[in-house]
Amino acid sequence: MNKIPNRQAICEVLMERAKDDRDVVVLCSDSRGSASLAPFANAFPEQFVEVGIAEQNLVSISAGLAKCGKKPFAASPACFLSTRSYEQAKVDVAYSNTNVKLIGISGGVSYGALGMSHHSAQDIAAMSAIPNMRVYLPSDRHQTRKLVEALLEDNKPAYIRVGRNPVEDIYEEDNVPFAMDQATVLKEGTDVAIIACGEMVRPAKEAAEILEKQGIFATVLDMYCVKPLDTAAVIRAAEPAKLVVTVEEHAPFGGLGSMVAQVVGANCPTKICNLALPDAPVITGTSKEVFDYYGLNGEGIAKKVVELLG
């Protein structure tokens, strides 16, 4: 079982890059520990800015730094970063077009028993609705690394959500198929298309394995690039399928499922089912307990597919 959370992978890439690039700057809002960025703060104190518990300040200060040529990565819990500082993300980052990378840590229901105030089940919807904001939910540490390396090469705004806990690897360390803004095809089959992002990619893949044993063949897409959505990949996967299923650690509205449904409806109408968290405060529990309860695991997804395929 992998012990390295995705947030730590982000820190590793930023530390590698910060050595040679003084413009790489990290900002935290009393979140250096929870973001796994304390090693960065210790190694590069001149390239680290602490703003205190002030997420609005975090984002605006990042925008000011970016305007002056810095490459800021602002890390704060996804719940606060995506909504407390929503207007700063909209105006100072996206609208002013500053090169700020917003890192939402402990996303989704990572904080488990801490409750709804700490869950970020709205962040995909919120951030995706902002013009000029990109939204990424990498599925494992290896893909996270590739993504951050790619983001260091561009100068546009982006929001990246990662979870708190280590997740099992989807990819092998020296074999990570990655193309920027293109979904990764994990499996190919024509009965059902299962499209997932972030921590839901693992159960989506497991569901396909369960279905295969029952003679149902699935295409599985790792849609880490929720915005810009890889619409070509969605259409390719959905066209031959009898059913499209999306899976996300997010509210049922405005997330991956909504976006995929728009593409499928407009291009290749097919029955579609959006699996997500409920439109209600999430039940108390660890991530695994919560996912199991709502059927967001391999068995739950497979069961739903069988049910819908009749």
Partner: peptide, 23 residues
């Protein structure tokens, strides 16, 4: 910078001033 929503200019300028100091 784009502005219009109030309360943004000063925090943005903190970032600018920090960048100048860093460089």
């Amino acid at each position: 910078m784009n502005s219009g929503s109030l309360g943004h200019g000063l925090p943005v300028c903190i970032g600018m001033a920090l960048a100048s100091r860093m460089d």
